[in-house]
């Protein structure tokens, strides 16, 4: 989809990798969830928006979860901060018992 919306191949790789990591987090912590991809456009640029949401256990300490190397699963502690670095915009909403929703956006350069 990234390639179809005329992202350069390096950017398409970044986006695909970010989606893969977000999907991994969902499977690891929440078991099920959804990922929605959307083409976004404004006056002078367009990009791709990815919303990864689940109704899993949620994250108690978001600040801690965003620190490099932090992971409660004990295996892959690089997910969220890494995804943030891959993308242009990053937003996370989560609370214990309320699930997690990560919204990221990559603008086409």
């Amino acid at each position: 989809m990234a390639a179809a919306s005329s992202f350069a191949s390096a950017e398409a790789t970044l986006i695909a990798t970010a989606i893969s990591e977000l999907a991994r987090n969902i499977v690891l912590y929440a078991k099920t969830g959804e990922i929605i991809l959307k083409i976004v456009e404004n006056a002078n640029r367009h990009g791709i928006k990815i919303v990864a949401g689940d109704d899993g256990p949620g994250i108690a300490d978001l600040e801690q979860a965003m620190q490099l190397g932090y992971s409660t699963s004990g295996s892959l502690g690089l997910g969220l901060p890494g995804v943030k670095r891959l993308m242009d915009e990053f937003e996370i909403v989560s609370a214990p018992g309320k699930g997690t929703r990560v919204t990221v956006l990559k603008w086409r350069t």
């Binding site: 191949s9 390096a10 790789t13 970044l14 690089l78 901060p81 891959l86």
Partner: peptide, 14 residues
């Protein structure tokens, strides 16, 4: 390892 893959790996801290 392709250039864009190397780039993503570094960005992700892998």
């Amino acid at each position: 390892i392709q250039p864009e893959v190397a780039f993503s790996m570094v960005q992700l801290g892998l």
